[in-house]
Computed example of a mutant assay.
Amino acid sequence: MSTGKTAKVLKTIKENETTTTVIMDVEDERFSSFRPGQFATIRIMENGEWSKPHPFTISGAPGDKLQMTIKRNGHFTSELIPALNDASQIQCAGPYGIFCKDIALKEEIVMVAGGVGITPFLSVLRHFKKTGAKNTCTLFWCNKTFADAFAASELEEMAESLKLTVIHVLSRETNPDMYYEEERPQIKFEKGHFSRDMLARHIHSTTASFYLCGPSGMQQTVVEELAAYGIAPDTVEKEAFVYNGA
């Protein structure tokens, strides 16, 4: 027996070799007023049977068509998601979750994302852009290479209209500074893994509101580095990002 509301796939976007964005129209008014940071579950009909529900963060802004950005990891995300089209049978349930619930009320925001853990922050920033928010935001986006940062161009555009600084933390780039452009001073680059030294170079206050989304191992390291910088771990709002690709 299936659950959720019927969804129609409007478009799929291949962000890079491992990541696909799916844009859907869902027969549920709740998806027009979700909060940035929330997630939903989707089921896909395969061989006459509904799949089990898979949770994914909503990456679009409230008021836009439902958008999810999904990394390939297992049969569901590697085979079914990239093959979606307007004839696919799909159902959505949600929205769920409280991550980033009151983020719009915070004056200074620091977001740390690991890989596709960027999705809730994309939702937040897309919402901020639509609403002309004045919050001061710093985003640390940790990836292996700059090619993995599929939303880099959009973030550059956001930084022109928002009080946004983006720091790309790249663990496998030998010279990440090669990507720096003088005309885009709000887009910065760091080599290696997220550290307290990077915080010291880019954050000058311990009173900001900190948000973290990424794989569990990465989260543990980031929390330790934040603590070393003087940020109490229990003040960091965290979202345990699970690559649900079975």
Rank of each mutant, 00 (worst) to 15 (best):
R172P: 02
N16R: 12
S153M: 13
T145E: 13
C100W: 01
Q91N: 11
C100G: 00
T19N: 12
I81K: 12
D86G: 15
K144S: 11
T3L: 13
L212Q: 06
T174M: 10
E160D: 14
K5Y: 04
E29W: 00
F121N: 05
Y211T: 04
K101M: 09
D25I: 04
S153P: 00
Q219G: 13
G37W: 00
E46P: 07
Q186E: 13
M178C: 08
P36R: 02
S171T: 06
Q220N: 10
S51F: 10
T6G: 08
L122D: 08
G117N: 08
F31R: 01
L122F: 04
G37D: 04
I103P: 05
A7L: 02
S51L: 07
T138M: 14
T207L: 10
A208H: 05
I42E: 04
G48W: 05
F31H: 01
R35V: 03
Y229F: 15
P53C: 03
E157W: 05
G48M: 12
K11H: 13
Q219I: 10
Q219S: 14
A7G: 09
G74D: 07
N47Q: 15
E173M: 04
A227P: 06
I42Q: 13
M218P: 05
S59I: 03
R201G: 10
G97H: 02
S59V: 03
F39S: 04
V9S: 10
E237I: 01
L226F: 05
G217L: 09
F39M: 03
